[in-house]
């Protein structure tokens, strides 16, 4: 029984997060591709290619995550986000030159 609880519990302590990337100023072209990095304590959990003005979704365990985004032309932003267990969140990251 204990083993079943240990196996099942972590999955139900996860949260779904949706992330939208927005350009904060006109120097950042909305058609440009960028790289999105999601990490916790310097551990890189996800790296994915997302266009500026694009979106992504993650299913992650609770924790404090750093979300960074950068385009080839240098439009970037970083934010810290705390994910709570069983609480979904919508995140918007605004990038600027």
């Amino acid at each position: 029984m204990k083993a079943i609880l240990l196996f099942v519990t972590p999955f139900f302590l996860c949260s779904a997060s949706t992330l939208k990337i927005k350009a904060k100023n006109f120097d950042c072209k909305t058609t440009e591709l960028g790289q999105l990095f999601v990490s916790e304590n310097k551990k890189l959990v996800y790296q994915l290619e997302v266009p500026l003005d694009g979106s992504a979704a993650f299913n992650l365990p609770k924790g404090q995550y750093e979300i960074s985004y950068i385009t080839k032309s240098g439009c970037s932003a970083t934010l810290n986000h705390t994910l709570q267990a069983n609480k979904d969140s919508d995140i918007t990251i605004e990038v600027k030159q």
Partner: peptide, 10 residues
């Protein structure tokens, strides 16, 4: 099987 991450949002 379950979703982990997507882009764009699924």
């Amino acid at each position: 099987a379950n979703e982990l991450s997507t882009s764009p949002i699924h």
